[in-house]
Design a protein around this nucleic acid. Structure first.
Lengths: 219, 219, 219, 219
DNA sequence: GATGAATGAGCCTTCATTCAT
DNA sequence: GATGAATGAAGGCTCATTCAT
């Protein structure tokens, strides 16, 4: 009845619509949280930001709680996809891979004011709600695990006298701390400077694998 | 009846000095934010937490906005006082001083779940409100400045090939990132582990000044 | 079930047009102010009076302030419409017109306890708020202007020795004073008595145009 | 002990103090109502206005309700005292007396922005509270009664064809309406103009007793 | 007498959610 | 699918009143 076969457009559009709408609303949520903060973001802000009607969010996400959970899930997934893809396409060798991982953390796609602002707002607030904690914990574990493995490989390969776990935890903290600096103090910290700082540390810690320009061609 | 003669303790009941009440309320605010999150903290929570009546907060702080600002100011001041005192009482020599600074960041007084939770909740949310930003920006600048100076001294003294600014920014980020890890993932990160991780980095970066047990006696 | 086919009456239940709701709420406001006074009228009173929920007033008027301003505007407009219509439909001749104007001031539609009570409550309180003052000032000027013109015509036509401006101002004051008397002392003053009193004055002042029964047929 | 006989000051001062304080507070109430309006006047405003502490008003008047009632009573009494004194000191003859009465209504002591503003605010709001109504009704009755008597005398004396009751009610209304005009529209109406307008009416109505300059010397 | 910290009821307002259309 | 008027619970805030000092 509703034009099933008219080209292959209509049914597809209908079908897509649902996902498209959810996507629009999640984007609007991120934008609002980045601009107004978590506490000040209302359902109306989200609906308005998406250019849709007021009741629409409850229609697609049932409740604000669930919209927020989905938004956090979406951001976690995007973050994870980004570093996994960087790892997958990196040149072989632990130095290359660690470098790829570190650089991916400063990719404009994940590392920009809007995303970082929403990211911390959501995570810090989620802190108080057990349900949310689980959403962002999982991907973090995997990220840290990858760093530990690479540090271990580098230590073995370079004969460094250091503990892989400690180095990995420190690097992980430094990366997250850099995001915070970029968010809180954009005048002083930037994606470029953050990367340079981390690079400096890698050069000091793994001198046989890194220079300030990045990984050395050691394989 | 309630301790009639014990010195002159009585005023605790109905009339307490304005400063005492404000202190109580700020503590209750921190506790509530740590437990419930920023968005879920209400004036009633704070009043109840302090064991006082509902109208009391507006009486002493005029508005929620101002209570929050005062709380942030209070926490910033406490944080700054802590590291300044550590620096002041440290043994002479840049390594000793940097170590004192780093250790102070993991003092139980400033580095504990309650304080960290409120700290990030307040700062991240403050992010959206220009007025609040200024409150926490100032002390941060001073802290980073102190680290830069010490890094410069160490580099000069040890003849290291590194950039003081980059190292300082990285260390600063790592310290803040550690707090985040302790907050978000207390099962994996702790004050002790955080300090050990940072120590590992100092050992790698300034090998002539630090071992994994701390600063070497170089002066 | 609730009148399924009776024309298309249904929308009255859940969704009423914005204008209809605003009208309902303004009426409820007038009623409440008349009954309880300005200071004692709460948003809840208005909502209850309209048989609607609590949040409804802010939904349609944004704030109490704006509801009150709209109510004042509504009453001013109704008052002005009333005398303008009376003037428009009056028989020709200044006496007939002045009489129509005076009589219109005692029309039951504008001159009744409920309306007068709200009218003065709103105007007197509005006195302290510059924004409101403007709302009721404009129509008053027009009313007074109309009286001045008619007095001038009568003086010219009857050869009276009097000043039109003074007479107009006095008549205007008397009319408003009558409303106050009707409001404050209904046992002594009524619409009928008020009109009779004014009529007596017109008879004394414009004896060639008025008798105690009203305007004389002079054209 | 408290210096009973030291001159005769202290005891007197103590004694007076009570009445003095009440007077101060009533004056502050009038000032605040005139400036802020009835609804916006708080106990704190009154206390601050009198330069006294917060709890003081309840101390001297028990409740806000009673403070307001006393203020209204005070103003009614002052108003009545003013016209009674005018009547008492007027030259003999009904025209002289009526003129004295009318003039007294435009005396600066009772007819000024501050007093009029508080007067109407209090009376109009009192309208909704039966207790208050009685306070201001009584003096009004007396005032109107005095006017009726004088009108009757003038009519008898001048052989006018008019009804004393109607004329009195109209004059009373006009006088009160003039106050309203002076309050609401000070740019157009003033004490001087108000008196001139009323004078014009008296001249028209009682031509054998009044000219535009006031009462004629007819006795 | 006087003070002002403290109380708590009640107000205005916001906002997530519902639901008739 | 989508809209947006309507709901009502909950929050921040004001303010008359109380009372220990």
């Amino acid at each position: 009845m509703t034009g099933i076969d008219q080209k292959t457009d209509k049914p597809a559009r209908r079908k897509a619509s649902k996902e498209v709408r959810r996507g629009q609303l999640i984007e609007a949520t991120i934008t609002s949280i980045a601009a107004r903060g978590f506490a000040a973001t209302t359902m109306a802000d989200v609906a308005d930001g998406a250019g849709l009607s007021r009741g629409i969010v409850n229609f697609h996400f049932e409740s604000k709680e669930k919209l927020l959970a989905e938004t956090l899930r979406f951001m976690s997934a995007a973050y994870e996809a980004n570093w996994r893809e960087a790892l997958r396409t990196a040149a072989p060798g632990p130095a290359q891979k660690l470098w790829a991982l570190v650089k991916s953390d400063f990719d404009r796609s994940v590392c920009n004011q809007r995303t970082i602002a929403a990211w911390f707002a959501l995570r810090v607030e989620a802190q108080s709600r057990p349900t949310y904690r689980r959403i962002s914990r999982r991907p973090d574990d995997a990220f840290l695990g990858a760093i530990v493995d690479l540090c271990r490989d580098l230590i073995a390969d370079g004969g460094y006298d250091a503990d892989a776990g400690k180095l990995a935890a420190g690097l992980d903290a430094m990366l997250e701390g850099m995001w915070l600096s970029i968010l809180m103090d954009p005048d002083r910290m930037s994606r470029r400077r953050g990367l340079a700082s981390v690079s400096q540390y890698l050069t000091c810690v793994f001198p046989r694998h890194f220079s300030n320009e990045g990984p050395l061609d050691t394989n």
